[in-house]
Amino acid sequence: MLTVFLQFLFSGLTVGSVYALVGMGFNIIYNATSIINLAQGEFVVVGGLMMWFFSDSLHLPFIVSICLTILSAGLVGLLMERLTIRPLKSHDLLLMIMVTISVSIVLRGILAFKFGKDPYDYPAFSEGDPLNIGGAIIQQQTLWVIGITGLCIILLYLFYNKTIIGKAMRACAVDTTAAQLVGINVSRMVMISFVLSAMVGAIGGIAITPISLMEYDNGPMLAVKGFCAAIMGGLGRGRGAVIGGFSIGILESMTAGYLHSGLKDAVALVILLLVLFLKPAGILGSSAAARLRKF
């Protein structure tokens, strides 16, 4: 019985770590701009597919492929910000969010053209049998994904708290005008946030592709799940997305295991709704802080 429970838990962790990584990407851009970037899922897909391109198609060494993938994703983020968000110079959040949706459609069109509609994968980071813990198995790649998620949290924490750029970005999050007044180049912060968020998304894509395969149209589903994760934990909170992601992942897996697999997404969403109704700003978010922001 315990074995079965553990197995459900591990499955939930696998799925949840994916959601958490996407959710973290949402927070980076939200923190600097209040925009929800719905092209976040496409960043993940770009990560997975470019990694395949560099490592399996061009046969570059593993580390080189990872670096090139992250760089190219950063470039996608940069182009997106330069070509759409910056020229808009708008304060209309709804408009900006719609622009991110239309950009995601463009990205999907390009990906479909470049990679076709087939799913892709490449070998896991480490060879070998899955680990056996109390009779339940956990794939090595899952541990990699969880480890990478942890690493990203630590790096982002250090970035936001220890570096001058990170602190400046947090200032933008609190009050853009005030940040501008103290001499922070807000528009550069926005640009950095897009590049950073694309990179985090791509890292997620690189890590999860060996588990779940990657297709050109995986983006919207990943974006929705990541968005839900970020909201559940409280928007803008790095750890919130992680808590949200793992909660949703484990909820889905437990529902599938103990209730019925057809209902797993529904139960996770119902719980999300309940969380929102009880704590309108998410698990970690404070309503007082939320009230300060327009969105």
Partner: peptide
């Protein structure tokens, strides 16, 4: 009688149930 969505990334839970 288990189900999963078209973009699901892990079906271990469903298979574990079938086995159990």
């Amino acid at each position: 009688d288990e189900r999963y969505g078209p973009k699901d990334s892990d079906m271990t839970t469903q298979l574990t149930k079938v086995k159990a």
